[in-house]
Structure formats: structure tokens, C-alpha cells
Design a protein around this nucleic acid. Structure first.
Length: 583
RNA sequence: CGGGCUGUGGCUCAGCUUGGUAGAGCGCUUCGUUCGGGACGAAGAGGUCCCGGGUUCAAAUCCCGGCAGCCCGACCA
């Protein structure tokens, strides 16, 4: 269900064709100065062939397909050229893969389901870490680190929990390799572990066991700890940054004396996530509670932030759980209360992952590549020296270095502006487009003419690849902080407007079903959005709609009390739920 | 777990049906002309054709057996 956005019957051959399309996109063969659009034939071919076709059959493809090209596809040859092929509207999932790749965020590794996070992508994650870490510290938390390995028996202590994760666990069974009879290395049969170890899919159980030792008295509470770590969930359908077998995240695990305190913690951390999404990622989110169906295995209550991305689907960008006494019971986290009684503690957990990077991509990137919000950009300003003639180079480079130094004296949210001077010997266009595709918020072109005039070409990525304005150098330096904030604000405003445009209050079953049904069933166009619709609270209704439309309740938003009628059952409803297709 | 497809330079692939010197585009290197919107020309480097066995004078190509990857379905905090 997570891959409903993929075109139907997208088979092996279609992939082959798609990659060939990619190869065709290479710029060197293009006419100067403007690239010519890719021939639409390729795209159409990808769609026309069935998924299973023998190699033999492929060897003799029909020589010409133009006669069968739908007019909508043919019209593409007139559309503006884009750096990313296909565009968002043509094929969103494929666009996503391409934009992540072209923007040098991450790539698939040789290990199935695992990604390599490249420096630019890791730089974004580091910015996220720094911001979140500061917010965690500001709310009284400390960092610690717990083991990667979890004894299977620990995981099994909480029934719902093990149910939820058992099917996607990587298991370590041996502690030594040896040379087998076939000459290959194999786990040594003599070195089998007495108890298999699971590689953490999440750490509630191992941390719970530790906390059980730490907590004896109410005086030991609360425990407020976060860990930055990797986790493994063996995914059958990986997608770069969004669903991978291994990913990076933070997980907070806290223990409290009372339910009230634990619930407050749960809500506080959700607010931290909401603030972070808004202020740093420039992504507006709905905050609310998950329905029972979507709750974390073992939790009493799961709160979440849900964002809308550009194909109008929802993505869960962060969760915060009130775990009640379930894990305290399973792990034996008990303490002597103020009254001298033995009591079970109340625990919480909360996390966000590298999926946030993918969320930012899907929220802001365009058909020319990534658009990174300034507060997350590893390089906020890139200076591109233009020095066509050898004898000008030294002067231009010196001016670029000086400009960089001046800009670094400026601050953005209390930190020096991150400036990079790209002095590589590359064609100006190539270099420029590289930074466009990487989504660097500001590009400054500095050439000989600028040196004479004391100006610089100021290019804002959020306004599109063509954005360019000549500004006096001193003015750019003096206002760079404001300018970055303008970009940050603009991205948020655009994302918010987009979400509002595609969020609808729906009160009838018919309208609901129509909203989530694409015009073209064969190759669904981007459609739907968020439906704010009443619900009688029954899991059966949820299940039915999930089966019919692949639409689920993303959350029951806070502060949305509004009695009404569930359009699916006619029964009373306390509030509207946010319904959407989701990642 | 069921069904299907594919393994050939760094990448994407052609070549296999009909066995006969290992190919293309992109990328990479060097030189020259370019460079303020994805440049061009010339010359180069780079491959145990997944592995093992068989047939043959001769195997990327045909046969058998492995292994790996991918796709579809099922499953999915």
C-alpha cells in the first residue's frame, strides 16, 4: 500500500527503458546553448510494453512508435526543458528517485535495501541533528547510547510490540566465521549463539531493561534520555530515504512517575517536532493522534506530525508515543512511590529519522532539482566565479574569496552564513546546474563585469532555476541573513498554500470516493489530497476504506472537536479525521 | 512464500535467434577552442562477457548445474 503511487504494471522492461531515458538525458550531446527536449517516444515506449517480455521479443522492437503516441505525450515536446526527467506530473515516484540522485543526497548501495548517504545529504541530516539536539537539550534531555543488539527474548516481552516488528527483523545467530568445505566463508556451526540477537528495529525493550536497573525510587525519576542511532527494519520494498532497511534516527525514551507527566512529555516532544518541521524544514504539519490501527505496537497512544508532499500524499514525519505502563510491565521498571508503594512507571518514546530528508525533498524540490530550505542547507550560499580568460582569473578568485569572507562575518540564526566558493575548472553552465540540482538556496555569480560595477548576480533557488538579479555586493553582504530568511519563509508559505489548496472538508461518501479516485486508473495522475471527514471511530470502517481506496486516517487532529455525522455509517462522530493516501 | 525477467568497460545497454578478432552512448584522461543558461573538436585509457561444467577446430552466443540481482503478487511501524 505504500507504493500506490507507482504506475501500475511497471515491470522490469519499463525500468530498463526508464534508465535508458536517463542516459539519453546526458547534456554533452545537446545543442548549445539550450538543451533540446528529450524525444517523447522513449517515455511512451516505457509505458506501452508490458512488464514481462522476453529478451528475444525485445530484440526486434517495432521501429517506430510515433503513430501510437497519445497526443498528451506528444505535446510534451513543447514544454519547457527541465533538469529532471521525468517531471513531477509525469511520474512522481521516478522523479523522486532522479531528484535525490541528481541532487547528490543519497544513492542505493550494493547492499540490498540499504542506502549510501552522500556528503550533501548527510550535511542536511547533520543540520537536522544539530537543531533537534539543541531542542532536546533545551527541554531537559541528555544523550546516551544503547546496544545495537537486542536479545530475542527482550523483544518478545511485550506481545503487541513483537507482533509489530517480528516480520522485519535482522537476526544475528553466530559470532564467528570459518572456511567451509566449499571454500567459502560461513558462520561457524560451533559458534552459534545460545540466544539469537535481533538488530534493533527500535530500542524500547533494551532501554527498558536498562531503565529497570536504574529506577528504584520516585527520586530516580524522571529519566529523560535520547539516543542518536541507526536501526534496521528489513523492508521488502525499499525507497531511498523513505523506506530503507537501515536508517538513521533519534529515539527519545523517558520514564515518569505519573501518567499525567508522561502524557505531557509525549505532547511536548510532538510540539518540538512540529516546531522543527515548520521552522527548519519549512513544512507545515498536522498534529494529532493516530487511530488504533495505526498506533505504534505496544503504545497506549501515538501522536504524530503529518505532512503533505507534492503528490498530495501524506507522510508521517515524526511520532511521539505514550507507552503507558506496558513496557514498564514488560521490562520491570518499578519504583517505590512517595507513599512507599511499589508502582509501575509510565514511559514514552519519540523519534524522527532520515525520512525527514526525503520529506523535505518531496515537499520542496521542483522539476529542476532539489530546493533545500536555508536552515537545513550545508552550504547556504555558493559563489560561482566566472573567469573566462586566464588573466582575469586571479582577480575574480580573489574577489570571490573576499566576498566569501565578508559573508561569513554575517550570521543567520546566530550562526555564520555557510559559504562555499566553487573554483573547480568546469564549464560555467555545468557548475551552475550542479548547484541548482543540489538545491543550494543562494547562488552568487561573480564575473569581471561585476568586479567593475561592484555588483554580483544573486540567484534564488526557491524562485526557480532562472531567477537572477544583479545586486550591489555590499548590499548582498549586509542583507544576506534577511534574504535567507525570506527564502525560508517563502518555502513555508508555498508549502502551506499547496496543502490548503488540496485539503477539503468532505461530508458525503460519494464525494469522498470521488476525491480519492484518479481519472486514469491505468496510470493514476496526481489526485486527491487531505480529506477532513467525520468518522464513527470503528476500525472496520477504516479497514474498508483502506481496501477500497488505499486511504487511511493519518491522524485525529488536536483541537478539532466538532460533532458531526460519519458519512460512511451515518453514526455520530466527535471530530473530523485527516484522511489521505500515504507513504 | 508464489510467478516472471536479467547478469557484457565506471553507468545504461547492443551483440546471442543463425558460434568465427569485444561494441555503442554517456562518464573518465590529455590537448585545443569555449565559459554570465546544461559547449565543441581531436586523441586516449578502461572488459576474467556472473561462476562451474559440457558440446565444438572455435562459445558472450548452444546445453546442463549453480549463484546473484531486479520486477509483479503476498506481507508491512
Amino acid at each position: 500500500m505504500h507504493h500506490a503511487a507507482a504506475p501500475p504494471r511497471r515491470g522490469h522492461l519499463a525500468r530498463l527503458r526508464a534508465s535508458r531515458r536517463r542516459a539519453d538525458r546526458c547534456p554533452r550531446k545537446r545543442n548549445h546553448p539550450r538543451r533540446r527536449p528529450d524525444p517523447p517516444r522513449k517515455l511512451s515506449a516505457a509505458r506501452r510494453f508490458g512488464p514481462v517480455e522476453s529478451r528475444r521479443a525485445r530484440r526486434r522492437p517495432p521501429p517506430r512508435l510515433s503513430a501510437s503516441i497519445p497526443s498528451t505525450v506528444r505535446a510534451m515536446s513543447n514544454k519547457p526543458q527541465t533538469a529532471i526527467t521525468p517531471t513531477r506530473s509525469e511520474d512522481f515516484p521516478e522523479w523522486y528517485q532522479q531528484v535525490v540522485r541528481a541532487g547528490e543526497l543519497a544513492e542505493n548501495s550494493e547492499v540490498r535495501g540499504c542506502m549510501v548517504i552522500k556528503p550533501w545529504g548527510y550535511g542536511v541530516w547533520e543540520r537536522m541533528q544539530a537543531a533537534l539536539d539543541a531542542m532536546f537539550k533545551a527541554t531537559g534531555h541528555q544523550n546516551a547510547y544503547f546496544p545495537l543488539f537486542i536479545p530475542v527474548s527482550y523483544l518478545a516481552k511485550e506481545a503487541e510490540h513483537v507482533d509489530g516488528f517480528a516480520k522485519e527483523c535482522a537476526v544475528v545467530t553466530h559470532h564467528r566465521l570459518e572456511l567451509g568445505p566449499d571454500g567459502k566463508m560461513r558462520p561457524a556451526p560451533s559458534a552459534e549463539l545460545a540466544e539469537p540477537l535481533v538488530i534493533r528495529p527500535t530500542s524500547e525493550t533494551i532501554i527498558g531493561a536498562t531503565y529497570a536497573r536504574w529506577v528504584q525510587s520516585y527520586r530516580d525519576l524522571p529519566i529523560l534520555i535520547n539516543q542518536w542511532a541507526n536501526v534496521v527494519r528489513w523492508e521488502m520494498r525499499p525507497r531511498l530515504l523513505l523506506r530503507t532497511a537501515e536508517f538513521l534516527w533519534q529515539e527519545g525514551h523517558t520514564v515518569h512517575e505519573t501518567e499525567k507527566e508522561a502524557r505531557e512529555e509525549t505532547e511536548q516532544m510532538l510540539r518540538v517536532y512540529e516546531t522543527f518541521a515548520r521552522e527548519f524544514c519549512a513544512v507545515p504539519v498536522f498534529t494529532g493522534e493516530k487511530s488504533a490501527n495505526e498506533r505504534f505496537p505496544g503504545a497506549v497512544q501515538t501522536l504524530c506530525i503529518e505532512a503533505m508532499v507534492q503528490d498530495r500524499k501524506a507522510i508521517q514525519a515524526g511520532t511521539s508515543h505514550y507507552l503507558g505502563q506496558n513496557f514498564a510491565k514488560a521490562s520491570g521498571i518499578k519504583f517505590q512511590s512517595r507513599e512507599g508503594r511499589e508502582e509501575l512507571a509510565h514511559t514514552t518514546s519519540w523519534g524522527v529519522s532520515t525520512r525527514l530528508v526525503g520529506t523535505v525533498v518531496m515537499a520542496h524540490a521542483d522539476d529542476d532539482g532539489l530546493v533545500i530550505p536555508p536552515r537545513l542547507a550545508p552550504t547556504q550560499v555558493v559563489i560561482l566565479p566566472i573567469a573566462p580568460k586566464e588573466d582575469q582569473r586571479a582577480a575574480v578568485f580573489a574577489a570571490a574569496d573576499q566576498l566569501a569572507a565578508d559573508l561569513r562575518q554575517q550570521t543567520f540564526h546566530g550562526q555564520p552564513v555557510a559559504v562555499h566558493v566553487d573554483k573547480r575548472e568546469l564549464g560555467g553552465g555545468v557548475k551552475n546546474w550542479e548547484w541548482i540540482k543540489k538545491g543550494c538556496p543562494v547562488r552568487l555569480e561573480l564575473g569581471p563585469r561585476d568586479l567593475e560595477k561592484g555588483s554580483v548576480a544573486f540567484c534564488r533557488r526557491d524562485l526557480g532555476a532562472k531567477s537572477k538579479e544583479f545586486v550591489p555586493m555590499s548590499e548582498v553582504v549586509a542583507t544576506i541573513g534577511q534574504r535567507l530568511q525570506t527564502i525560508q519563509d517563502n518555502l513555508y508559505a508555498k508549502a502551506l498554500a499547496f496543502r490548503e489548496e488540496h485539503t477539503r472538508r468532505i461530508d458525503t461518501k460519494e464525494e469522498f470516493y470521488a476525491f480519492f479516485t484518479p481519472q486514469n486508473a491505468e496510470r493514476p495522475e496526481i489526485h486527491g489530497g487531505f480529506a477532513l471527514t467525520h468518522w464513527n471511530g470503528s476500525p472496520e470502517v477504516e479497514e474498508q476504506i483502506k481496501n477500497d481506496l488505499k486511504v487511511t486516517i493519518r491522524c485525529l487532529p488536536f483541537d478539532a472537536s466538532e460533532p458531526g455525522t460519519c458519512p460512511f455509517t451515518g453514526q455520530p462522530s466527535k471530530q473530523r479525521a485527516v484522511w489521505a493516501k500515504s507513504y
